[in-house]
């Protein structure tokens, strides 16, 4: 392992997140087992109090998790010159088999934790804890995922040894190479361009349907998730070329560098935030028949849908503007 302050910070963060979520999961488990709203017993009152503890723990863990996602990428970026052949985070992450799984796992846990917070928000609006069971079941799904992520990250970081020969991002995301990341780069412009704009249009249409006629929450959530994947694929396939002004450089990480105005941060933040809001709309849609939520759910859903749409539009605006203003023409 490399004794880098950033690596230590990541280990501290994932240790804390695991601890917080494990504690929250244990409390959630107790709440699931013993919950009986009609009872006025001491136990039930104690459990009701513990719901505050769980939400505080998860909210803090989520915040740390999102920050550590960016810290992880930034640390990988900073470490690249300790590995021969690695030119940015893409190379550092490929140093051992745990790099990319850790990254994907971090993104997945961020999305799920975001959805959890949306459910929690709705739950506190109803007078009778209407979502208590689904919420804590989701938490019990989230906890093992975060623990796995912690383990993956630990394996990745302890497995880092300076000077291991790795592929640089130029070859990893270059044309004519096998592998998942390389396939993304290989997705041709004529395919990705219509797919991206099509998905964006479909998302807007679904948003209109939802906001106007209060229908299709599931569709909207699905399209939000699809938009996240398609947007990342499109970013690697052609948007980043305009940003780098280089027709061969398909790297999703160099966007986070100073040279490109840190444009990667707003791009990934809007994508992540939009996906969380969109998935939240769908998750809430599952519970629209709960009586105590009937009054607040549509407002909450509308607000989330608006956020998802605005964030998606913001992403599209940034990459679109870059595409128009870039001197590169494909």
């Amino acid at each position: 392992m490399i004794q880098h302050p950033g690596i230590l910070a990541l280990l501290v963060a994932s240790g804390i997140v695991s601890l917080l979520l494990a504690a929250a999961g244990w409390q959630g488990f107790r709440i699931l087992l013993g919950w009986d709203l009609r009872s006025g017993s001491e136990v039930q009152l104690d459990l009701e109090r513990r719901t505050y503890l769980v939400s505080t723990l998860v909210a803090n863990a989520l915040l740390i998790q999102i920050l550590s996602l960016f810290l992880f990428i930034f640390t990988a970026e900073g470490l690249h010159n300790q590995f021969v052949g690695a030119m940015c985070a893409a190379g550092s992450l490929a140093v051992n088999a745990y790099g990319y799984p850790t990254l994907l796992m971090k993104v997945a846990t961020c999305l799920l934790a975001g959805v959890w917070l949306v459910l929690h928000r709705a739950d506190t609006q109803g007078y009778d804890y209407p979502l208590i069971r689904p919420k804590y079941l989701l938490l019990l799904v989230l906890v093992p995922l975060v623990l796995t992520e912690t383990w993956l990250q630990l394996s990745y970081l302890t497995g880092l040894k300076a000077d291991v020969m790795t592929s640089c991002c130029g070859s990893l995301f270059g044309q004519g190479r096998q592998g998942f990341a390389a396939e993304l780069a290989g997705l041709p412009l004529w395919l990705m361009q219509p797919v991206f704009w099509g998905t964006f249009a479909a998302l807007l249409a679904a948003g209109f349907l939802l906001l106007r006629f209060r229908r299709g929450a599931g569709l909207f959530a699905g399209l939000s998730l699809a938009y996240l994947f398609v947007a990342v694929a499109a970013l690697i396939s052609f948007f980043c070329l305009y940003i780098y002004e280089l027709p061969t450089h398909h790297c999703p990480f160099c966007l986070l560098k100073r040279e490109y105005g840190w444009v990667g941060y707003p791009l990934y933040a809007t994508l992540l935030g939009g996906a969380i809001a969109g998935l939240g709309v769908g998750a809430l849609g599952l519970f629209r028949n709960r009586e105590s939520l009937a009054a607040v759910l549509p407002t909450l859903q509308a607000r989330l849908a608006w956020s998802a749409l605005v964030l998606a539009a913001l992403f599209t605006l940034i990459v679109g503007l870059w595409m128009i203003l870039s001197p590169l023409r494909l």
Partner: peptide
Amino acid sequence: TVLFFLTVL
């Protein structure tokens, strides 16, 4: 950020 992670968290 690293500093923040090591102390405030």
